[in-house]
């Protein structure tokens, strides 16, 4: 995988959000439609192409915690808001950015997390659970050893306490478990095929009203990561 090799050569400890999603997408994981832009003018053009509202995010490999660095602007409704957001992100970043991500604003109230770790005993293991802020608060997750069979992926979804989030609820369609299962299997495959990938967080993975899952944010940690 070219983008992995490039990142390792540059001694990066992580992939940027954009590169992380490129990797995921190449394994069939559905991700947000997005463009990496370098100017406010380009941002406005891409925002129009995606359709408002949009999200702007500062994008760089070293930027693992975007919210804390104040480089995320949500629900931008028009060109004026996009231009202002672009300027603020550049100012707040405090580092050289790869560019700014212009991203579709995914609507959905149900946030999930999927991830990959490399366990000393069992090797690559895949995680599924409640996403967003609930990942840290409720810690409602399940694990499986890669490679996953579809049966394993379905059992992981059934194992979390909050599994009802995957059912039809208040006018929202049930989760597309088929696509979710394929995403979990894909994460395991990434772990098995790329020993340089140490960990992956996809958080949040948002369920749209239609039940379709989309990876909204993603972080790939590489094996040459510095120990913290």
């Amino acid at each position: 995988m070219e983008l992995l090799e490039k990142a390792l050569k540059k001694k990066q400890s992580t992939l940027s959000e954009y590169d992380s999603k490129q990797l995921l997408q190449s394994y069939g994981v559905p991700v947000t439609r997005e463009y990496l832009v370098r100017s406010a003018k380009e941002a406005v053009a891409k925002a129009a192409e995606l359709g408002y509202p949009v999200v702007l995010k500062g994008c760089a490999a070293a930027l693992a915690h975007k919210t804390e660095s104040d480089v995320v602007r949500l629900a931008l409704a028009d060109a004026k808001a996009v231009r202002r957001a672009f300027k603020e992100i550049k100012a707040n970043a405090g580092m050289k950015l790869d560019g700014v991500l212009v991203q579709e604003m995914v609507k959905g109230q149900r946030e999930l997390v999927v991830g990959l770790i490399r366990d000393a005993q069992f090797g690559p293991c895949v995680m599924f659970g409640l996403g967003g802020i609930y990942t840290e608060i409720l810690r409602d997750v399940s694990f499986r050893v890669a490679p996953l069979e579809k049966r394993d992926a379905l059992e992981m979804m059934d194992e979390i306490k909050g599994k009802k989030i995957l059912d039809a609820f208040r006018g929202m369609e049930p989760a597309d478990k088929e696509t979710l299962a394929q995403a979990l299997i894909a994460l395991g495959e990434i772990g098995l095929q790329h020993p340089q990938v140490k960990e992956i967080d996809v958080n949040p993975l948002i369920l749209k009203k239609s039940g379709e899952p989309v990876a909204v944010d993603a972080l790939v940690v590489l094996e040459n990561a510095k120990k913290k």
């Binding site: 400890s13 992580t14 693992a64 997390v113 991830g115 990959l116 770790i117 366990d119 005993q121 069992f122 293991c125 995680m127 659970g129 990942t135 840290e136 810690r139 997750v141 399940s142 694990f143 499986r144 050893v145 394993d152 059992e155 140490k198 960990e199 992956i200 967080d201 958080n203 972080l219 940690v221 990561a225 120990k227 913290k228």
Partner: peptide
Amino acid sequence: ACASHTGILAGESDLFASACRQ
């Protein structure tokens, strides 16, 4: 040391039990 939430949660989980059940 873990750079991801997945890594931290894995440390807290009983991976041995998950693997056996799987």
